[in-house]
Simulated scan of single mutants.
Amino acid sequence: MSQVLPDDATLVHDLIGIGFGPSNVAMAIALSEHNARADGQEAVSAHFFEQQPRFGWHRGMLIDDATMQVSFLKDLVTLRNPASEFSFLCYLQSRGRLIDFINHKNLFPLRVEFHDYFEWAAAKVDDLVSYGHEVVGVAPVERDGTVQHLEVTVRSGEGLEVHRARNLVIGTGLRPLLPEGVERGDRIWHNSELLAKVDALEGTSPSRFVVVGAGQSAAENVAYLHRRFPDAEVCAV
């Protein structure tokens, strides 16, 4: 492992974010909009670190006909700033999709389309994020019994590096939850990896699936497995 490289000793970010999913993308947008309005003294310096090589949000759950479970108005910005240029409506306009979306008379867009919206928004603030960087340690730096700032150790293909911040925002997302005593394997999957696991079955003839759970995602999984494997028995438990 490469040696920890000290950052510029004079640079202490106002904020460092761990993870760059929708929550921290929304934070980055809010900071970007704040800094666009602020003078130099009020600007907030921030940077985010994401271990994935590019933006991705529940990619294994992007079934082609699955819809969002919340209204499009609960996008990254609208509840905070309805006039924001980062809204889902602005995304639709940029894609030439606004009129079609309105004519659908549906407040719940496809999950695939909302993922594209997230990617579109994340790309507009990509100067604030380093992909392929995993945060592996956080330590306080104290002076006279008071925490002055935090040292954040980040690992990338170039080794380890230390960054400093006064505030830390953790947006690492949820961990897959399985019933007690159950471990993932070739035949036991979590919903978050559905598409990749199903693609791996291409060319085989599975005879039976059991989907455990009763939420919208479970129902979508049952319907999807029925379509992909019409000769298989699909049980919802």
Rank of each mutant, 00 (worst) to 15 (best):
A43H: 03
L73M: 15
V136Q: 01
V77M: 05
Y131W: 07
F118L: 15
G132I: 01
L98V: 11
I99T: 13
V70P: 00
M27Y: 04
G60Q: 06
L110A: 04
L98A: 12
E33T: 11
A83L: 02
K105F: 10
H133W: 13
V70H: 03
R97K: 12
L98T: 03
H58Y: 02
Q41P: 00
R80T: 08
K105E: 12
R111Q: 09
M61V: 07
A46F: 12
F86A: 11
S94G: 09
S87V: 10
F72Q: 05
R37A: 07
Y131M: 00
G96T: 03
I29A: 00
H58D: 10
T78N: 07
G96L: 09
H104W: 05
N35D: 05
E119C: 12
V44H: 05
Y117V: 14
L76Y: 02
D100N: 11
D64M: 07
L98F: 10
A66R: 09
G132N: 01
N106G: 08
P53C: 05
S84H: 04
V136S: 01
R80S: 15
T67N: 02
D65Y: 12
P109L: 02
K74N: 13
Q41A: 14
I29S: 01
D75W: 01
S71N: 11
H58F: 03
S45Y: 01
H104F: 04
F72P: 01
L128C: 08
H133R: 10
V77R: 05
A46L: 00
H115V: 14
C90P: 03
V135G: 01
Q51N: 05
L110K: 09
P82R: 00
G60E: 04
I102T: 07
A46C: 09
I29L: 14
H133T: 04
V138F: 06
H115D: 14
Y131S: 00
W120M: 07
L62F: 04
F48I: 06
V136L: 06
R80N: 14
H47V: 11
E113H: 02
H47A: 10
D126F: 02
V77T: 10
A38V: 04
A123V: 01
A43M: 14
S130D: 12
E50Y: 11
Q41E: 15
H104L: 12
Q69Y: 12
M68Y: 09
V70S: 07
H104K: 15
D127K: 14
V129K: 02
P140Y: 00
H133I: 03
R37W: 00
L73V: 15
Q52H: 11
A43L: 09
F114V: 15
F72W: 14
A28H: 02
T78P: 03
S87C: 07
S130L: 04
H34C: 02
A30D: 13
K124V: 01
H34T: 06
V44E: 06
D116W: 03
A38L: 06
N35K: 03
G40H: 11
V125A: 08
V141I: 15
V44T: 09
R111K: 13
